[in-house]
Design a protein around this nucleic acid. Sequence first.
DNA 1: TCACGTTGCTAAACTGATTTAGCAGAGCAT
DNA 2: ATGCTCTGCTAAATCAGTTTAGCAACGTGA
Lengths: 341, 341
Amino acid sequence: MARNRATLADVARRAGLSKTAASMVLNGREGTRLSTEAHQRVFAAAEELGYRPNVAARSLRTRKTATIAFVSDIVATTRFAGGLIRGALDAARERDHVLLIAETQGDAAFEQYAIEAMLDRQVDGVIYAAMATRRLAVPPAILNGPVVLLNATSPENLPCVLPDDERAGRTVATALLEKGHRDRIALLGRNRLKEREPGVSLAAQARLQGIRDTLSAAGTTLLAEAFCSDWLPEHGYAAMRSLLGRSGRPSAVICMNDRLAFGAYQALGEAGLAVPTDISVVSFDDDPIATWLRPGLATAALPHEQMGRRAVEILLDGRTTEPTLVPMPLRRRRSIAAPAS
Amino acid sequence: MARNRATLADVARRAGLSKTAASMVLNGREGTRLSTEAHQRVFAAAEELGYRPNVAARSLRTRKTATIAFVSDIVATTRFAGGLIRGALDAARERDHVLLIAETQGDAAFEQYAIEAMLDRQVDGVIYAAMATRRLAVPPAILNGPVVLLNATSPENLPCVLPDDERAGRTVATALLEKGHRDRIALLGRNRLKEREPGVSLAAQARLQGIRDTLSAAGTTLLAEAFCSDWLPEHGYAAMRSLLGRSGRPSAVICMNDRLAFGAYQALGEAGLAVPTDISVVSFDDDPIATWLRPGLATAALPHEQMGRRAVEILLDGRTTEPTLVPMPLRRRRSIAAPAS
DNA sequence: TCACGTTGCTAAACTGATTTAGCAGAGCAT
DNA sequence: ATGCTCTGCTAAATCAGTTTAGCAACGTGA
């Protein structure tokens, strides 16, 4: 790969100047007293030779590689991850950086290996990302340099980027209140483990909090709360069936994520109930299926691209110790309407 | 990042030997006549200092970085992409390599930039991936070194890795024939553009071919073929409705991908038809929704991880010019059954 | 006229590894 | 004693850049 590349020495020779001069000109150094003519000759030579600096050689001296490590637990390969990487990639490109990616697969040995592999390559910083928003333990090896946690927090109080789940809870509840729902709002997807263990999830607790605060500020409470052992469609399906089995059918259901909502749609369809005329549904995440469902599912979007972008910005531009909360905008789709009765 | 790292010189000093000796021992060079004792001293020193070689320095000399560029059009951020990256990452790790990733976003300027950024970092090879299986033009800059196309072919006959869509077509059709379907099999998702333009898709043509060959070998043909302007759920929904509107309802439908199948499920649900008792459905891709649908959707899986893995293997281990076709295994789920009548 | 500052540039050191060429000493045969 | 090979090791070059230190020529004021 990359044979026959012109070197700085080639450029200097062609320009009839020293390597020093060529280096300074090409790096746009201020305060060198090189003549305008020297500048022109160097630029011309570089152009003619198609000169591109060798990053390895440069970084050997400068200890900067313009490379960021993006290490994730298993985020890199899930449907939710795309946006994180895309946002990070975009922001990195704007700053002339590239991304080295690695996955730990939740395995300590892999993690150790991955991090060493990145550090060996002299990355300028590390973005440590989690698939589920949660609290985690950061491997000590990366604490020597700049780190930003993405979709995670840690006991060390490192700079981190998180979705604003609590506000999303408020947004979602408010959307229902605005349509006239009040005392017949049910919640689907309570889960003790996710709510109590920050190491498992931070979203569950925050979303619940936001929802409850908003309803209680409006002088009401949840009509019913269905528990789910996980947040997959099958659990949403079962939970929705159980909600429908109780007396007092809700006018609206808040699902803790879109996959649950998908399951809920299935149960509603089987029960012959129409969304949103019989029952409104609103949710969190903005998974691609949210647009595929009929009617489209209103949902508070996880701002993955924004988050990935912010992580790079914080890493390269500015240190912030307070957590950065990225808003989760509500995607208004046809699944919410005024209650029937 | 990576301050205070011990260098080879530190190791050599501590072992009381020269850098040359230390380098040779640590690289396990054969034929050096260094004593067993020298070996032990070097290993001990390296261990004690936590020595890790500086890849930039090494690659400056050896022109190998143990780094692979993974450049995609927009594959890195889609739901389908995860597996490609995961497989590549896995295979790379097994060979002590890491992945630099970049996205061209289908933009020639971005592509140029991304490729130069990778080449500047002296990558050992490039994997050039496409989101949709298709034929594409490879940017000349990467032709100087090893390249493998992933999910794509090119006029230059470069080594490439593709899913075996034609065989998948046969697999899918055979699955229906085996259940007893024969003269009432419909196809949903014909699309002239995808079938005719290799630059748009290679899958459509290949899948169609496999299906037709199999049915014709069984002495039958497709009962009906519904065209779709794209392969999204809404198109599947509309196409399924139009199929049901015709006289002679099919006993089974083959959908060109899972998103179409999802739309088809929606239309069937609305029409009060049950899968698979009234109508069997089978499809391609094995998108996550295939498991979420009720009943689960039988589908020929795009072997993303395998493909990513193979791409790295071919890049690093062996040159093959013939396209590598990776089988698409049928995920048997409850959406296919014997026809009702 | 000469010290001094400015201008325009360069030689050489340096980064951390690999690799080539070769040296010193021991053992052995002649 | 001399020449030879073998053993065990090292000095120095090299990769492609950046950076430090400083040189030569020229103008200027005293």
